[in-house]
């Protein structure tokens, strides 16, 4: 057992996958000697060689498309897009190929690939380095979209993603890459790719979130506890498929739900969660579902970034609002 940060857990899972399956290959921009700009692949090229850990040219569409080709021809590629802000040329390959190769060949060719990308704001990064557009990806049938929010979950979910027979987009919340350390047992145990995690139990309100916002959401839950409000906190972790059962069970218990995400409000994944509750859990609701999300604006540059990102304060206000509804 070792105390690892989230980015170290990613690296441990990548190392484990390379170790256990000779079909696993890593490629992306600067993933070799440099170890990736966040060091997620640090030391792997030294251990596994240039054949299996490759620096690619600066070509995101190629990175994704090459992963499709290699996966369909028997490999287990784990490709990295350096920042989510540059994933868009790769989305063509995800929408038009990775997600549908199994369907369109009736299972003859499959696409067991992982596309990793650091995402999200709050680290005062340059323009285009802070957005959260995960709902675009969660909208694509045939893909899985996974977001870890702790070192242990990063390790287990990434291993599961690599072993999964279908394409997975693995979005790493870079704001918490090094935020905390946690015991991670590097024993190759994977986590399920279709289950949300209950991070805190409570009876008054359900807080649904994922990625780095787990930090603010747990902070809000502690603050609320001080005021006698018991919040249940769910980390969705797998944005696609969505574990609606866990959400509905919690809302059935609490009767209130506040969804927290960093991504812009409109057509964000929170809308889907709210719709699921409206369709299947309406009778247990004691108050309207609330969303605390990024604004529907262009993500501001670092000076105003803090005003854009939902903080614990906004979450507390939304919960108090829900509690006051009669």
């Amino acid at each position: 057992m070792a105390e690892l940060t989230l980015v170290e857990a990613v690296r441990a899972a990548l190392g484990r996958a390379l170790e256990e399956d000779p079909k696993v290959i890593l490629f992306g921009e600067d993933v070799g000697i440099d170890g990736g700009v966040f060091r997620a692949t640090d030391g792997l090229v030294q251990r596994y060689g240039f054949d299996r850990v490759r620096d690619t040219p600066l070509s995101e569409a190629l990175i994704a498309g090459m992963a499709v080709g290699a996966a369909a021809h028997g490999m287990r590629p784990v490709a990295e897009v350096q920042f989510m802000g540059f994933i868009y040329p790769a989305i063509d390959q995800l929408v038009n190929h990775a997600s549908r190769l199994r369907t369109r060949t009736r299972g003859r060719l499959t696409c067991p690939m992982v596309l990793r990308a650091p995402y999200g704001g709050g680290i005062h990064a340059p323009e285009h380095h802070s957005e959260s557009t995960e709902s675009m990806l969660a909208h694509i049938p045939g893909l899985r979209v996974v977001v870890p929010s702790s070192p242990a979950r990063a390790y287990g979910l990434l291993l599961a993603a690599i072993r999964d027979p279908d394409p997975v987009v693995f979005l790493e919340p870079k704001r918490i890459y090094r935020a905390l350390r946690e015991d991670v047992n590097d024993d190759g145990t994977a986590l399920p790719l279709d289950q949300a995690f209950l991070l805190r139990e409570g009876s008054d309100v359900t807080l649904v979130t994922w990625g780095a916002m787990v930090v603010e959401t747990l902070e809000a839950a502690s603050a609320l506890a001080g005021r006698g409000i018991q919040a249940e906190v769910i980390d969705l972790a797998t944005l696609k498929p969505l574990d609606t059962a866990t959400i509905l069970a919690s809302v059935a218990k609490t009767g209130r739900c506040v969804i927290v995400h960093e991504a812009a409000m409109t057509a964000g994944l929170g809308a889907e969660v709210a719709a699921q509750i409206a369709e299947r859990g309406l009778t247990s609701l004691l108050a309207p579902v609330r969303r605390v999300a990024g604004y529907d604006t262009v993500m501001p540059l670092p000076r105003l970034e803090g005003r854009y990102m939902p903080g614990a304060g906004r979450i507390v206000l939304a919960v108090e609002d829900a509690m006051a509804f009669a």
Partner: peptide, 17 residues
């Protein structure tokens, strides 16, 4: 043109194997 990156990936797999 989206088949060309696939061909690169298939070729990579072929050469590794």
């Amino acid at each position: 043109a989206s088949q060309f990156p696939h061909a690169a990936g298939v070729a990579l797999a072929m050469s590794l194997n």
